[in-house]
């Protein structure tokens, strides 16, 4: 199965092996016809309607604005409905450095997102800490506190790179299962179990 999106040839994607491994994982569990086609319909809806959360901490956020503007126009793909309330967004683009003080807030935002929810680590800082890796106050990548679906490197990534990242996410959403065993839900649960939010204050 070649998972791709409109006007993007399969060969042009960079990491088809990863998607193919997901596909084979998906196929291994098997599915019946009715559920399978319902899944297809749902995935069509989900993958074509990814609403971002307006969330940005630094420079990457400005590029995210540029992504919405006329030159790059993410509205073409239906991503322009940026919701300010996490309850209504589908994915959060962690655009910018995440520091110690911000970490609980980011995690809370993630917890407030309604299922299904996805995370894109956008920019060097969110991927690994970037140029501030050695700082006493910077997380070495948002992967320390959130289960990340797509990493998008760059400092800041060009809007084209961001488009590519969200397209990758959309492709990943396409091979999910709504009914029955969802492959990525399990790994995410484990991740969240290993990174608990301690219930001490507030």
């Amino acid at each position: 199965m070649e998972v791709t999106t409109k006007s993007m040839p399969y060969e042009d994607w960079k990491d088809n092996e990863y998607i193919e491994s997901l596909v084979s994982e998906l196929k291994a569990s098997g599915t019946n016809v009715i559920v399978g086609s319902l899944d297809k319909l749902i995935n069509w809806g989900r993958s074509n309607s990814l609403w971002p959360l307006t969330f940005a901490t630094s420079c990457c956020g400005i590029e995210f604005i540029a992504l919405g503007a006329a030159r790059y126009d993410m509205a073409r793909f239906g991503w322009e409905v940026a919701r300010s309330s996490p309850r209504q967004a589908d994915f959060m683009m962690v655009a910018g450095t995440i520091v110690h003080r911000m970490a609980p807030a980011v995690r809370r935002l993630y917890d407030q997102l309604a299922e299904p929810k996805y995370v894109i680590a956008c920019g060097g800082c969110a991927v690994s800490g970037g140029p501030f890796k050695n700082s006493y106050h910077v997380l070495k990548g948002v992967g320390e506190i959130l289960p990340v679906d797509v990493y998008c490197p760059g400092c800041p990534p060009r809007p084209e790179a961001m488009i590519y990242a969200i397209m990758q996410l959309s492709r990943k959403v396409k091979i999910e299962k709504f009914f029955g065993g969802v492959n990525r839900k399990e790994s995410r649960k484990e991740f969240l179990k290993n990174h608990p939010v301690s219930e001490t204050t507030n």
């Binding site: 110690h100 003080r101 970490a103 609980p104 807030a105 995690r107 809370r108 006493y136 997380l139 320390e144 506190i145 990174h195 608990p196 939010v197 301690s198 219930e199 001490t200 204050t201 507030n202």
Partner: peptide, 11 residues
């Protein structure tokens, strides 16, 4: 000494 804390600080 200063790990990444996920609990909210007290206001």
């Amino acid at each position: 000494l200063n790990p990444v804390r996920l609990n909210h600080e007290e206001t």
